[in-house]
């Protein structure tokens, strides 16, 4: 019998959110998500023989003294299987456990799928758990906050539109102290390249934008950046399984490139 035991770590996004759940909401949400899964989920659940070969692939398992509850198969068993078996009738505390496992004990590297003799996409199963937790709004606070930032601002750091513009213009001034003719050209229609950073750059490390400008200047690249929404290439919404916000962010990113008539998008990282 698997027993899920962890050191208690307070997280408002989980601890407070589960207090707002009702049994009806939990059941309805789980069953709505499972209803949309089709044959894929059924095939995965019916195919898994619980052999545990996936365990050795998981760095959470290996780095926790081979505690079996960190093995991928256990993470599925401790979350999704229980939901399926109980037809969605699970407790708020169980949802808190699911959120903790799905968001903080799997980082979707997918190594386990390579170890599975059947190639079961275990990350897909964990992603379903994340999706359920997201729709119940039981998500670690700072992950949810970042997701909300994407939803509200289309960047992950709550940057206001004028903050972004001012930061880039400031960094252009900085880089021009060193390279007199260097530029960070906003909205240059027809440039070869649209470069997009992730929002932590303008928010916390704006000098990285200047560093990029130096590279572009030295390499003679014909480049631009959008002054409007769509400049952030990150998408934390994908990680929390907020697929609607994810697609909105991605659409905006590509549409920025279409608007600027660039031939390529170059992203940091």
């Amino acid at each position: 019998m698997l027993k899920y035991e962890r050191k208690e770590i307070a997280d408002l996004g989980i601890d407070e959110s589960v207090k707002r759940l009702t049994p009806e909401k939990i059941t309805k949400t789980i069953n709505n998500v499972l209803k949309g899964t089709g044959a894929r989920l059924k095939a995965y659940l019916d195919t898994c023989i619980h052999c545990g070969l996936c365990a050795e692939a998981c760095h959470y398992y290996l780095s926790h003294g081979k505690n079996p509850t960190y093995s991928p198969v256990a993470k599925v068993k401790l979350t999704l299987w229980e939901m399926v078996k109980n037809k969605g009738n699970v407790s708020p505390d169980f949802i808190a456990q699911c959120s903790r496992i799905a968001y903080t004990e799997c980082n979707r590297c997918r190594r386990c799928s390579l170890y599975c003799p059947y190639g079961i996409d275990i990350w897909y199963l964990i992603a379903l758990v994340r999706r359920i937790c997201l729709l119940l709004k039981v998500v670690p606070q700072y992950e949810m906050d970042t997701n909300y930032s994407h939803a509200a601002t289309l960047n992950m750091m709550w940057l206001k539109q004028d903050d972004w513009i001012d930061t880039v213009q400031w960094q252009e001034e900085e880089v021009r102290m060193e390279y007199k003719t260097a530029r960070i050209p906003f909205d240059k229609e027809g440039a070869e390249v649209m470069y997009t950073p992730i929002a932590p750059e303008p928010k916390f490390k704006p000098q990285l934008l200047a560093a990029t400008a130096k590279i572009m200047h030295a390499a003679g690249v014909d480049w631009t950046m959008p002054s409007f929404d769509g400049w952030d290439n990150s998408d934390i919404s994908m990680h929390v399984a907020d697929f609607e916000t994810m697609s909105r962010v991605e659409r905006k990113h590509f549409e920025a490139a279409f608007k600027l008539k660039v031939k390529r998008i170059v992203m940091c990282e």
Binding site: E16, Y142, A152
Partner: peptide, 9 residues
């Protein structure tokens, strides 16, 4: 406040 996910919601 920063990261007030409940007020945002």
């Amino acid at each position: 406040k920063v990261a007030d996910i409940f007020a945002f919601a």
